[in-house]
C-alpha cells in the first residue's frame, strides 16, 4: 500500500494521523532507548531486542519482562508478568471496539495490534471532538510510532551505554509527564475529576501494598466501578 493509491481524503487523513504520532515518537524515544540498553545488559541479541519490540510492542511490559530474565524466574512466569502489565489493553479494546466495530475484519485485526496507550487516548480524543475515525487516519498515526519504537529499541541496544546520565536527562520521568498530559486531555468528560482521584489513590495504595503491575488493573477498576455505579449521565457533553 502506498500513498499514491489512496484517494485525496484518505491521504489527508493519513497525514492528519501522522501529525499526532510525532509527539508520541518523541516522548517514547527515551523509554525505548532505556529498554534497548537494558536488553543489551541482560544479554539479548540485537535481533531479539528488536523482535521483542516488534512482537509485544508494549514498553512497560518489555522492561518488566527483561528485569525478570535476569532473576532465574521460570519462563512461564515471565510471560504471565508481561500479560499482567498489558492487561489494561482489554479495557481499551472494549472501549475502542465500539468505534471501529464496523471496519472490515482485517482492518480491525490490524488496528487492535497497534492499540497502545497513546493511540488509544488519541482515538478517544478524535471521537470526542467529532472527527472521522478512518483506517487511514489510524494507521497514519500508528505506523510512525511503531517504526520509531523499533528503531530506538535497536539504537538503545547498540548505543545505550553512551548516554552519560539518563537520570539528569529525565529519562525515567518523561513518559510520566506525557501520560499526565493525556489524562488532562479527557477533563471534559463526565465525572472526570472523581474518577482521576479515585483511580489515582487506589493505584498508589495498590502499588505500595499489592505491588506492580497489579496497581494498574486495581486502580483502573476502582475508577470504572465508581463511574458504573453513578447515576447515568448523557455522555460527552461540554
Amino acid at each position: 500500500m502506498t500513498v499514491a493509491y489512496l484517494n485525496a481524503p484518505a491521504q489527508a487523513a493519513l497525514l492528519d494521523g501522522a501529525r499526532l504520532g510525532l509527539p508520541v515518537m518523541i516522548a517514547s524515544a527515551p523509554f525505548g532507548l532505556l529498554y534497548g540498553a537494558l536488553a543489551a545488559d541482560q544479554g539479548l541479541t540485537l535481533f531479539e531486542t528488536v523482535l521483542m519490540s516488534a512482537a509485544i510492542y508494549g514498553g512497560a511490559s518489555q522492561i518488566v519482562g527483561l528485569e525478570l530474565f535476569g532473576q532465574k524466574v521460570p519462563p512461564a512466569l515471565v510471560v504471565l508478568s508481561i500479560f499482567a502489565v498489558n492487561f489494561r489493553h482489554i479495557l481499551y479494546s472494549a472501549a475502542v471496539g465500539r468505534r471501529i466495530g464496523r471496519w472490515p475484519l482485517v482492518q480491525q485485526l490490524t488496528a487492535f495490534f497497534f492499540l497502545v496507550d497513546p493511540v488509544y487516548a488519541e482515538t478517544e480524543n478524535r471521537v470526542e471532538r467529532g472527527g472521522k475515525l478512518s483506517f487511514a487516519w489510524y494507521m497514519g498515526m500508528c505506523l510512525p510510532i511503531y517504526v520509531s519504537w523499533l528503531a530506538v529499541s535497536g539504537i538503545g541496544h547498540v548505543f545505550g551505554k553512551l548516554v552519560p546520565d539518563p537520570h539528569a536527562l529525565g529519562f525515567d520521568f518523561l513518559v510520566t509527564i506525557y501520560f499526565f498530559g493525556l489524562v488532562l486531555g479527557f477533563r471534559k468528560r463526565p465525572l472526570w475529576l472523581p474518577i482521576v482521584l479515585i483511580s489515582g489513590v487506589a493505584s498508589a495504595v495498590a502499588y505500595n501494598t499489592v505491588g506492580s503491575p497489579w496497581h494498574v488493573s486495581i486502580g483502573a477498576l476502582a475508577g470504572i466501578i465508581f463511574a458504573v455505579l453513578m447515576p447515568v449521565q448523557r455522555e460527552m457533553e461540554g
Binding site: 501520560f179 463526565p190 483511580s199
Partner: peptide, 14 residues
C-alpha cells in the same frame, strides 16, 4: 467512557 481517565491515571499516580 471512564476507561481513559481511569487507566491512564494509574500509569501516572505511583
Amino acid at each position: 467512557n471512564a476507561v481513559p481517565a481511569a487507566v491512564l491515571t494509574t500509569l501516572v499516580a505511583p
